[in-house]
């Protein structure tokens, strides 16, 4: 069975880090064999998403328990929802934490009564956390969407249908190619491509061209290329959404 201990260093003699989300390392220990692996955390400063990154790291490494100094209720509830036991209040070295866990994990657990009252608080906490996340995601997509809708208004009034017809002439192959070209240049949230695509349909642009536009909008984008170049070979990049 594997446990994840938040740590200030990459070995068993490192101190247990106080905060799970921003610990420098997560030391993943197989308590049966004693083998361990130190994984450096992607986020070591307090910023949005730090908790999520730490959760993903622990879960993806197969940890069944997390031992740390402190873990926020929202992060703890997400870990528990993923079947990971959360043990807080730990100090000393990673080795101490492992030994204590092996001897008796119950020593570090909170009393049951405390747990149940905390569960109610966490549920409310999770709901608030989810609502905040949803609101943040929603607000993030609004500015560009507002810009796109305002642009559609301008387009509606100032651009003649003749100009659009000169680009999308009715030739299915050529129109689809144009749609794909425009979609490849732009990137960002797909909702914008749906709005633009929907309006293009009203102007009589073919569904082929609009489909090419919205598909390439989400699958081809120059903005993401640098990150993907670091990940894939040039041949693979030709095939991937970028």
């Amino acid at each position: 069975m594997k446990i994840a201990v938040s740590a200030d260093g990459s070995n068993l003699d490192a101190k247990v880090a106080n905060r799970f989300s921003t610990a420098e390392y997560l030391v993943i220990i197989d308590v049966d064999s004693g083998e361990f692996e130190a994984v450096s955390s992607p986020v070591t400063v307090r910023q949005h998403g730090a908790g999520v990154q730490a959760i993903v790291l622990a879960v993806s490494r197969g940890a069944k328990a997390v031992i740390t100094g402190y873990c926020s209720p929202a992060v703890a509830s997400q870990l528990k929802a993923s079947g990971v036991e959360v043990l807080t209040g730990m100090t000393g070295t990673v080795r101490d934490a492992m030994e204590q866990y092996k001897k008796s994990s119950s020593m570090m657990k909170l009393p049951e009564a405390h747990h149940s009252s905390m569960a109610a608080m966490i549920n409310k906490d999770v709901l608030i956390h989810a609502a905040r996340n949803a609101a943040r995601q929603f607000v993030t997509l609004l500015p560009i969407l507002i810009g796109v809708v305002l642009l559609i208004g301008l387009f509606d009034v100032f651009v003649s249908e003749g100009l659009l017809a000169s680009i999308f002439s009715g030739n299915v192959a050529l129109d689809t190619l144009w749609g794909a070209c425009f979609g490849s240049i732009f990137a960002g949230n797909p909702i914008n491509s749906y709005v633009i695509g929907g309006e293009l349909l009203k102007y009589g642009v073919s569904l082929f061209a609009v489909t090419a536009f919205i598909v390439t909008w989400v699958t081809v984008g120059l903005v993401q290329l640098p990150a993907e170049i670091a990940f894939y070979s040039r041949y693979q990049l030709l095939l991937l959404p970028s």
């Binding site: 993903v56 993806s60 993923s82 956390h129 609502a131 996340n133 929603f138």
Partner: peptide, 20 residues
């Protein structure tokens, strides 16, 4: 509806589930 679905996804689908 987008907001409601976003809320439900945040509530029931955790990044850890994706990692799994």
């Amino acid at each position: 509806l987008v907001f409601v679905i976003m809320l439900l996804i945040n509530l029931f689908l955790k990044p850890a589930a994706v990692a799994k």
